[in-house]
Design a protein around this nucleic acid. Sequence first.
DNA 1: TAAAAATATTTCATACCTAAACTATACGGA
DNA 2: TCCGTATAGTTTAGGTATGAAATATTTTTA
Lengths: 156, 156
Amino acid sequence: MSTPSKDRLRLWLRLLRLTRHVDAHLRDKLRVDFKTTLPRFDVMAALSRHPEGLKMSQLSGVLRVSNGNVTGIADRLAEEGLVERVPVPGDRRAMTLRLTPAGNVEFAVQAEAHEGWINDMLTGISAADARAMAAQLISVAQVAENKEKTNDPSHA
Amino acid sequence: MSTPSKDRLRLWLRLLRLTRHVDAHLRDKLRVDFKTTLPRFDVMAALSRHPEGLKMSQLSGVLRVSNGNVTGIADRLAEEGLVERVPVPGDRRAMTLRLTPAGNVEFAVQAEAHEGWINDMLTGISAADARAMAAQLISVAQVAENKEKTNDPSHA
DNA sequence: TAAAAATATTTCATACCTAAACTATACGGA
DNA sequence: TCCGTATAGTTTAGGTATGAAATATTTTTA
């Protein structure tokens, strides 16, 4: 009663269960402690890694979400003065989104708490184990992504 | 430049990236091949494991989503004749949701395809590795969940 | 047994998220 | 230059998700 296919399915369900659990906890903490959401945090995290700002399309590319999605989140963050839209010189279609000074301060606080929450939830894993698992997951991800690129027609 | 906290954060980001990748692919396949969605599939999967049906509150408990959420998904599945609401004798507040015969047939087809997609994406992992990783993830999840129950006030 | 508390579900407001349609701008070639 | 096409971004329609309020119905308790 254990085929390779079933073993992989079980691994996936395990993986999904853990990430959903952690994910839900993070969303809850962000909401209660900072009155924000994970998508908003993700946008600010991406902008924080690019102090010069990112074009809307670059942002949706980095976050792997749709274009229209980023528009709405940017609207709400801009309303609160955490991010700002800056025209791109030489291309009147494009807009650069970047953190305001206030946004930078706010994100620094949130990011530190975020790291703390994850550290708390994963305390049972040693630093060495964490590194080993992360390395293993990288290879899994590469396999999965390559599989996709080859556009295998089975099960299509 | 590597503290235990940072190692765990990196592990989490890795985990999140892989699950989001697989998740997105599954949603896409469900949409294109079956004109359905992952939440709908999840509801049908839960009902499939309980042929006698589940009360709305049990369902939202199993799926770990809000009550109001299940209402909407059940509405749409019921419209298509895949599930049905059955009154609970002796408690006029409650309703049992269960798959219709048509829903059972439809889910069987979708579930087989689902297993195939995951098997394709994770082909690079041997059955033995899959079992080992799943076991490791169980212990991680237990730690994470226990951590929550103790209600540790740090970072609260 | 009447009031109060608990339970089961739906409704509501708000935010996410996607694919597809749409607007505006840029750019390559005839 | 004019046209076709590609690109950047927003808008739209529909489904997903939450927490909180509203309804209806038990169950408890005083």
